[in-house]
Computed example of a mutant assay.
Amino acid sequence: MLLQVLGLFFLLAVAKAQVFSLGKCPTVKTQDPFDINKYLGDWYEIYKFEASFEGKQTCIRANYQLKEDGHIRVQNTGIEDGKNITAVGDGYAPDKNVPAKLQVRFSDKAPYGKYWVLDTDYDHYTLIYSCTDLAGLSHIEFAWILSRARTLDDQYKTKLFDLVTSYGIKTSNFQKEVQEGCS
């Protein structure tokens, strides 16, 4: 009984800083076809689900570059408390037949996490989703909408919100990110 209570407290602590929901992860479809070469370059975070590992950063930009080993160099930059914050990670597609189902990590000691591209036009927007089932009873999910510019036209927001809604993902979990006053 003590282990169950401790487990519940752990799950509540994790859930406080992430989007935690009951039930299994929703079934989603990734972009098909997906061309990683068109995806490379700079993207700006416009909307996101709460993610404790991002802290309270603003002006978040992600840059993706292909490495010689076929993996992807992921560099995230942002500003927190007036300081530039940079995190460099590694990404790859474990199944070449499903290239939009990427795995990414930001530490050699950390496991890879899901980075699934659900939709992108490569020029204006991308929608990324990650979900992990917890014993089939609940799940933790993350989602990001990125843009090639620091703003995103409402037509793309509407399209992407409609897409996540069709999968049963709550758009109310999205938070608008600050991209004003960025250098």
Results as ranks from 00 to 15, higher is better:
114 K>W: 00
33 P>F: 00
29 K>Q: 14
151 T>W: 06
94 P>V: 02
63 N>P: 00
171 T>N: 10
62 A>L: 09
3 L>I: 15
180 E>R: 14
40 L>V: 06
126 T>Q: 13
108 D>F: 09
41 G>M: 04
113 G>A: 10
182 C>S: 12
2 L>Q: 15
48 K>S: 14
115 Y>D: 07
24 K>Y: 00
72 I>E: 03
127 L>S: 06
46 I>Q: 07
180 E>F: 12
54 E>D: 05
7 G>M: 07
102 L>A: 09
24 K>A: 07
126 T>H: 00
79 I>Y: 01
62 A>W: 04
137 L>W: 10
67 K>V: 03
178 V>C: 14
140 I>H: 09
36 I>M: 14
139 H>A: 03
28 V>I: 13
42 D>V: 08
39 Y>Q: 04
98 V>I: 10
104 V>H: 02
152 L>H: 11
151 T>S: 13
35 D>M: 06
20 F>L: 08
167 Y>H: 09
157 K>V: 15
66 L>T: 10
119 D>L: 02
61 R>K: 15
118 L>E: 01
29 K>V: 09
30 T>G: 14
146 L>H: 11
93 A>M: 05
32 D>C: 04
152 L>A: 09
29 K>P: 00
68 E>V: 08
112 Y>Q: 09
43 W>V: 08
148 R>V: 08
145 I>M: 09
162 D>P: 04
91 G>N: 05
60 I>W: 00
85 I>H: 02
127 L>T: 02
31 Q>M: 13
53 F>M: 06
102 L>I: 14
169 I>T: 11
96 K>V: 08
43 W>Y: 04
36 I>V: 15
176 K>R: 09
118 L>D: 09
34 F>S: 07
174 F>Q: 05
